[in-house]
Design a protein around this nucleic acid. Structure first.
Lengths: 343, 343
DNA sequence: CGCCTCCGTGAAAAGGTTTACAAATGCATC
DNA sequence: GATGCATTTGTAAACCTTTTCACGGAGGCG
């Protein structure tokens, strides 16, 4: 039994389909008794509008795509909920797409979303499809988060933490404890998140009289999306003699934590660990790295608002950039270096 | 600049739109040189098909709705990723909808999904829209998880843990340690998850000679979706003198854990804690409740497969029920009760 | 050389909606 | 009762596809 259509409703109510449409959308005055009859017919038939047909006609799908590297990553899943809520409140639905930061997956999802006529796209870009994203951004509202697109003619909004000051706070925290051989476990160097965090690190270290250049031994570049990178980075830098580590995001931190756990390292006696990002159940961990807190829910809500504004303005807005302030949460995973490790 | 349509492609290639469609879908033979010209025109114009129009014509949207209480809950977010992957591999997209277990939100999302012509719905029902879900299930493929719909004419598939044996394992674990005053922090009693877990508990206790009926003092009914319920339950049952607690899902467990943490309870000396479900970063917690492990990724993948089969069979399949086996993960949060607490 | 078959192509309808435009109705006024 | 205007209603086109059907041409066969 196929769904009733507006035609069926019209016939049953003894009016034209235009009248039914007007009743449905309240788009024009309709005589009271006809409204009654139409509503009765709708109820009788269990009619509900076909929003696909509506989209075809109206050229808006009331749908937004949310493209992230991995929706199962708690940072993104914390975000998606608030994105969803804000969108829903404005009558929009949400498509989720996980790319694993993979170029091909990302571009194929983007094609799919365009074919599905989404009204806008929220995306943390992989960093490998910059021209494509830039093109899309000139046809369709786009809001980025966490990772910028470096093209001049990119059009759209951007939301992120204040990476620079966050990493400066972490670095200073370690410096104040007396550390000098501070390691940074970073993500892919072609991502703005990584470069900004590296810049912050470099700046804080320079102020302390330490030069972080290509020769600096305590830098590790891994992959933001892989917990294993965090473990590899922690191992490499610890073995080189770093006395403290900064993990540049939550997943890298988790890997580093697991490394310490497996190696039975005593924190902070043998190693200090801190990170940029939120780790779930932090309060309940036996080692609690000092963290830069993040606000995924607030960021998601802001992104949703930005994209809706951009959709409703028909993508005419100027580019906007929102930075969330950072907050240092001291944990028991950082402390003074051991005396014998000071060089 | 609006998107090119199939008409534009046809004009540029000097063929009819039917031919373009045939090239796009490879639905019929087309002369080689025409195929070339069409493809060239597609590239020149940057044409991509409008899948909304396609849906209207073909009556399938290649879209599935995923309706859960809270996508930010790590159990569901672990699931959604594998649902997404399997669906995507079959050319489907995913709408996510969080209901908070609220009846109104649930039914409004369901309406929205139907209007958007989704091909199928995966849902963990709130338990308050049984007739609606049953109706929908007779028109549209539906796969449930975690919570059954008790209506006889419900049509669709069901996936869950083997709740009964899981809770029996937990209960026996505590009984073997010597506990008798075992508390159960459960969720809403109108949900199959809750009743099945209660049944398992009751059965294991009966075998040990303890009757769990309305008079049994160590039962607490909270809300599966609220961490705070877990805390409230833990407080209430601990104060009544329970020596061990079972939290019936991950969120309730988290609340209970936090209660213990805040009260500085020594586990397992003052209280034993175990739970049904997975807690993130379990390895790294200083108190690790004994847990029944869950497999959200595997459950999600299975759900996706079930719904696709059901979609492609046009909802003609018999109802299927898949139970995932349970595995007990011993933690340091459970131990023998203190001698002075044995009654 | 004529006929039939087969293959490739195009014209047009259909899918469910919205909306511009035309038609019809209702009412007041003279 | 005719006229004019304002309000309500209906008709039909449009949105972009897919697909049925009919047509035309090429090739094979008698």
């Amino acid at each position: 039994m196929a769904n009733a259509t507006i035609k069926d409703v019209a016939r049953r109510a003894g009016v034209s389909i235009a009248t039914v449409s007007r009743v449905l959308n309240k788009s024009a005055a309709v005589r009271d008794d006809l409204v009654q009859r139409v509503n009765q017919a709708i109820e009788d038939l269990g009619y509900y509008p076909n929003s696909i047909a509506r989209t075809l006609k109206n050229d808006n799908s009331k749908t937004v795509g949310f493209v992230v590297s991995d929706i199962a990553n708690e940072f993104f899943s914390g975000m998606v909920r608030s994105v969803e809520d804000v969108l829903n409140r404005h009558g929009y639905n949400l498509f989720v797409c996980s790319t694993d930061g993979d170029r091909t997956r990302e571009s194929s999802y983007l094609s799919l979303l365009r074919e599905k006529q989404v009204d806008g796209i929220i995306i943390n870009v992989s960093g490998k499809n910059d021209e494509l994203i830039t093109n899309i951004s000139n046809q369709l509202p786009v809001a980025l988060f966490s990772r910028k697109v470096p093209c001049a003619n990119f059009r759209g909004d951007f939301v992120d933490n204040d990476n620079f000051s966050g990493i400066v706070a972490l670095t200073n925290h370690l410096l104040e404890l007396g550390h000098r051989r501070i390691g940074l476990i970073n993500g892919q160097s072609y991502l703005s998140t990584a470069t900004e965090r590296l810049e912050g690190f470099r700046s804080a270290m320079r102020t302390a009289g330490i030069t972080v250049d290509e020769e600096y031994p305590y830098l590790y570049n891994g992959n933001f999306n892989r917990v294993s990178s965090g473990g590899d980075g922690a191992k490499a830098l610890y073995e080189k003699g770093a006395t403290a580590l900064i993990a540049a995001n939550n997943l890298l931190a988790l890997g580093a934590l697991q490394f310490c756990h497996e190696q039975h390292l005593l924190l902070p006696e043998q190693l200090s660990l801190c990170c940029f990002g939120r780790i779930s159940n932090l309060d309940l961990l036996y080692i609690r790295p000092t963290c830069i807190e993040q606000y995924p829910a607030a960021m998601g809500a802001r992104l949703a608002e930005l994209i809706i504004e951009r959709i409703e303005s028909k993508n005419t807005l100027l580019n906007r950039e929102i930075r969330f302030p950072t907050l240092l949460l001291p944990g028991n995973g950082t402390g003074a270096p051991r005396a014998d490790s000071l060089s």
